[in-house]
Amino acid sequence: MTGAILKTLAQLVLLLMLAPLVSGFIKMLKARLQMRRGPGILQPYRDIHKLLRKGMVVPDSASWLFSATPYVVFLATLLAGLMVPMAAADTPVGLFGGVLAVVYLLGLSRFFLALGGLDTGSSFGGLGSSREMTVSALAAPTLMLAVFTVAIGAGSTTLAQIAKVAINQQWRFLEPSQILAFAALFLVLIAETGRIPVDNPATHLELTMIHEAMILEYSGPYLALIEWGASVKQLLLMTLLINVFWPFGLAAGWSLAGLAAGLAWLLVKLAVVSCGVVLVETANAKMRLFRVPELMAVAFVLGALALVSTFLF
C-alpha cells in the first residue's frame, strides 16, 4: 500500500515537473531552429508560477462550469498520466485503467474544456470549442486503430502489459507495421497537442486559433491549471508513443537503478520526439481547418495499413 502511494507520488511529481520542461524544450528548440533566441527552457515553469499567483477575471456571463473546468481538465489529465508507464513498465494505477481509459480521460478533459469555452459567451470560445471537438473527433479513429494495433499485439489494453510485451521484443519497432503505426500515432499526437500544422500554439491571431481560442477568457490560476494540464497531456502522449514503440531502458521492476536508467532513457527519447515535433512544426505552415481532415485521413490509412500489415503478412 505504501509502495503504491509512493509510486503514485513519484510519478505525479515526474509528470508535473517534466511536463513544463518538455514544453520549454520544444519552444527553445524551435526558436533556435528559426534563428531566434527565444525564451529559456525554464520559461514554462516561470509562467505557471506567475499565473498561479496572479489574480483572475471571470467573465460575467460564465457560470460555475467555467470555474470547474480548469480543475476537471487538470485532474483528468493528471489521472491519465498516472496510467502511462514512464520510467518503469509498471504503472502505479494501471489496474484502474489502460490505454482506453487514458483516451477517454483525455476526452473528459476536452469535453469540459470545450464547455468552458462556450460558457464565456464569446464567439472565440465557441469557435475554439467547435474546432477542437471536430479535430479531436477526426483524430479519434486513428488513435483507436493505433491503440488496437498495439493492444492486439500485446494481448491487452493495460499499458503496463503492453510495455512489458514491447520490452521483450526490443527490435520489433523496425517492423513495417510498427513504423506505420508509429507514424499514424505521431500524426495524432500533433493533432491532439495542438501543434502546427493542425493548430498553432503560439498564435494570437483569433481566426486561426483552436486551443487558444477556447481558453481565451481564462486567466490567473485557472489558466495555469489549464496550461499545465495541456503540457502534461503533451508529455503523456509523447511518453505513450515512445514507451510503446521504443521500450528501451524501461525498468521492468521497481529497482532504483532501473528507474534511474529508465528515467535517463525517457529523457533521451522525449528529446528525440520533441525534435521530431519541432522539425514538423518548423517545416510546415499551419493548415486551413478544412485541410485537417486530409491529414487525418492519411493518418487513418496509415493506422489501417499498420493493422493489416501486422496480421496479414
Partner: peptide, 13 residues
C-alpha cells in the same frame, strides 16, 4: 497562492 489572489468578474472580451 490562490488564497491571496484576487478574483474579479468582468465582461467577456
Amino acid at each position: 497562492w490562490g488564497r491571496r489572489s484576487r478574483r474579479a468578474s468582468g465582461p467577456t472580451w
